[in-house]
Design a protein around this nucleic acid. Sequence first.
DNA 1: CCCAATCTAATTGCAAGCAATTTTTTTATC
DNA 2: GATAAAAAAATTGCTTGCAATTAGATTGGG
Lengths: 146, 146
Amino acid sequence: MDSEVLKLENQLCFPLYATAKEVVKRYKPYLDELGLTYTQYIAMMVLWEHKTINVKSLGEFLYLDSGTITPLLKRLEAAGFIVRKRDSNDERNVIVSLTLKGEELKEPASKIPEKISKCLPISDEEARTLYQILYKILGDNSCGIE
Amino acid sequence: MDSEVLKLENQLCFPLYATAKEVVKRYKPYLDELGLTYTQYIAMMVLWEHKTINVKSLGEFLYLDSGTITPLLKRLEAAGFIVRKRDSNDERNVIVSLTLKGEELKEPASKIPEKISKCLPISDEEARTLYQILYKILGDNSCGIE
DNA sequence: CCCAATCTAATTGCAAGCAATTTTTTTATC
DNA sequence: GATAAAAAAATTGCTTGCAATTAGATTGGG
């Protein structure tokens, strides 16, 4: 048995997992000011761009299933940022849309990305490289993942 | 206000967050065979390497705090893979060590990393680049994270 | 020696996150 | 048009993850 392959430092997945968590943590102070969690923030980002969307499409954008999204949307609705409504043309679908309060959150939120990118100790070049490799993995289906 | 910066596709954090989740998901079928979750697996990796460790050090390796680790270790103990014991030299510390059953899990686990890396659609070169950039971010303290 | 500060785990409370199942609606097939 | 299959969201049950707090042990300064 090769013990080396099982060391944390020889894994690729581990730094991916740990870095994702640490970077999300860096958003927290800024998101706290808006009253959003990170997952709520990315859901709002989809809404700020699309104005209105159903739960299934939102899940596809975010790589999240209804078991995660449904309670998340209920919280965003309880906070007054969105409304949920059954689609009268197809009652299976739930349409999510922004309230005025949710729309207004876009402006302060638009200042966050720059604060975060200033905070990451990598060059623009490295950021582009990272972005490309990540999407290469993310866009791949070769192992039968969805 | 610049709307472009708020699009999901223009973020770096989002593909990081999403890719981490998707890659962890690819471990699931292999880890299911061992009866481990991904987080339990990385905790076991630290133990396979160090044999014995206290909760604080384990948390530092994994970037997890006691609120996550304590219940996780209790599950690993209930499954018979580890034992937890107060350090008699300093009763504040809890020492975690492998049982024979936990030790024996190392052999089948050692076959997983290769299966996963075959499954990622990136070259060795890209994997190295990704690894380096991730650790560059992870190792950084400049924004007052821990 | 004593008391305050520090340290370590554990606990609490809440929000993800996901697999599996259920409910309701729509679509296809006969 | 009835019924089976498919589709979408919600629900259930479990684990992770983290901030904040608590409990107990140790250390340091006076």
